Simulated assay, not measured.
Amino acid sequence: MGVLQLEDIKELITLCAANDRLGQEKLYRKFYPALFLLCRKFFPVQEDALEALNDGMLKVFKNIGRYNDDKGEFFNWVYTIVRNTALDKLKVNGWPRHVEVDEIIIPDNDNPLTALESSDIYKLLDVLPPATRAICILFYLEGCQIPEIAAQLELSAGTVKWHLSEVRKRLKPVLLQYYKK
């Protein structure tokens, strides 16, 4: 079955490279569930998540000829483009560029979200401001390191650490209630 799926993906890539609308629709529908959940992590409003997904997929279709299967799986390539498009959309919407903070130490293995159910995580993420939400997702759910997040979002490492501190501060009361259950 895996081989069949790989051949299907290769066929869809060929169709999309030829600007075949039906092929594009099939590819979009095939990846929609996972990519919509990705965008939904960043945007509490469903329409914003859908807009980011659609913008990302448009970039995928425009650049599909550049995909090289020697460098990785196709889905990972698409996922990265859509994730970066969502982050760019957040940046354009004007999150704070720099926050003055003292050095905040954030241990990499201290993930307050590990004990939560996925539906609870999304409810918690909805209460965070966009920049803090994006950094929380990249750090805790995507597994990115602070320097990588800082470079990707064009923020200082101190600003990223401040946002991670904000996550803990804002979610602490809710998490305490969750752990008492």
Rank of each mutant, 00 (worst) to 15 (best):
I104C: 02
D88G: 09
T132W: 09
D126L: 00
V160I: 06
V82K: 04
C144F: 14
L90H: 09
H163R: 15
P147W: 01
V160A: 00
S119T: 10
V99I: 15
L153M: 15
I135A: 14
T132F: 08
S165A: 14
D70F: 08
A115F: 10
T85R: 05
N76E: 08
W77N: 00
Y122L: 15
D70S: 09
C136Q: 00
E142K: 09
L141S: 07
E73T: 05
C144Y: 11
P107Y: 02
D110N: 14
A157W: 04
E148L: 04
L90F: 06
N84D: 12
D120C: 07
K161M: 07
R97L: 13
H163I: 06
L153F: 08
I104W: 03
G158I: 01
S165I: 01
T85K: 04
L90K: 12
R83A: 04
R97F: 06
K71D: 09
F74D: 00
L128H: 02
Y122E: 15
R97V: 12
P130W: 04
P96Y: 07
S119Q: 10
D70G: 07
I81L: 11
L138F: 06
H163E: 08
G94D: 01
E73F: 04
G143D: 05
L90A: 13
K91G: 03
C136V: 02
L138Y: 05
H98E: 15
A115E: 15
C136D: 00
Q152D: 13
E148T: 11
A151M: 13
P96F: 08
D88P: 02
I137V: 15
C144I: 03
S119V: 10
L125S: 05
G143M: 03
L128F: 06
V127I: 15
W77Q: 00
L124Q: 06
D110F: 14
G94S: 02
D126T: 01
T80M: 13
N84A: 02
W162L: 07
A150N: 14
S119Y: 07
R133L: 02
I137S: 04
V101N: 11
F74C: 04
L113A: 01
A134Q: 13
I105L: 14
P96V: 15
